[in-house]
Simulated scan of single mutants.
Amino acid sequence: MTEQKRANPAPLGLSGFALTTLVLSTFNAGLLSSSGVGVVLGLAAFYGGLAQLLAGILEWRAGNTFGYTAFFTYGAFWEWYFLTAMGVFGNVTAAGIGLVLIAFGIFTLIMWFGTFKSNLGLFMTFLLLWITFFLLGVGAMTGNVGLTHAGGYVGILTAIAAWYTGLAIVVSESLGAKAPLGKAPMS
């Protein structure tokens, strides 16, 4: 009996992450009025959150510890964002949000080391993401709008890198080609 081919869950997780990050980052960068930031909530709950949680579970089933840990963690981040923005946890301070963002930055920095032998797409996504988290976290804790805007711009670059990585896998697989993702520094 031959084993049935399974779809790669990484493009779903990367795309959910990228689109949600892109939309929120445009607000963080100050490119759109913060009065419209509620548009991110549905994305955070379902595409950034639920889709990444599902991708994480599928990565776990495939035995990919890195993919499982990354997608499940960032899916949970987006669910936290959604619930926090909805006020489910009550009054949350800017310092508290900043602390959470910095903690996710530390997690992402550690995960970034795991990309050193993967591909340039993942390497750049995680590099830009930990920088984004630190900028947004310090910006939130200090009330520094300039750091928050910088975090938004780096977040936009993060989203582009993640989207490219995920969609390169989809397009190359549909064309029967190798994904043009480049080599990570230590690969």
Rank of each mutant, 00 (worst) to 15 (best):
Q4M: 07
R6G: 00
A10E: 02
G13E: 06
S15D: 07
G16H: 02
A18P: 12
L19S: 05
T20H: 03
T21Q: 03
T21L: 04
V23S: 11
S25C: 06
T26K: 06
G30N: 10
L32F: 14
G36C: 07
V37I: 14
G38W: 09
V39T: 13
A45R: 06
F46P: 00
A55G: 08
L58C: 02
N64T: 00
T65A: 15
Y68E: 06
A70C: 04
F72P: 09
T73K: 00
A76Y: 03
F77P: 05
W78P: 05
W80V: 09
L83F: 08
T84F: 01
V88Y: 06
F89A: 01
G90Y: 04
A95T: 14
G96N: 07
I102A: 14
I102L: 15
G105I: 11
I106K: 11
T108S: 14
I110N: 09
W112D: 09
F113N: 09
F113V: 09
T115G: 07
T115I: 07
T115D: 06
T115C: 08
S118T: 15
S118N: 02
G121C: 01
L122D: 07
F126P: 05
L127D: 10
L128E: 06
I131W: 09
I131E: 11
I131M: 12
F134L: 13
A140L: 10
V145Q: 15
L147W: 13
I156D: 06
L157R: 08
L157G: 13
A161W: 08
A162N: 08
W163L: 14
T165C: 04
A168W: 04
V170C: 04
S172V: 11
G176M: 02
K178I: 04
A184E: 10
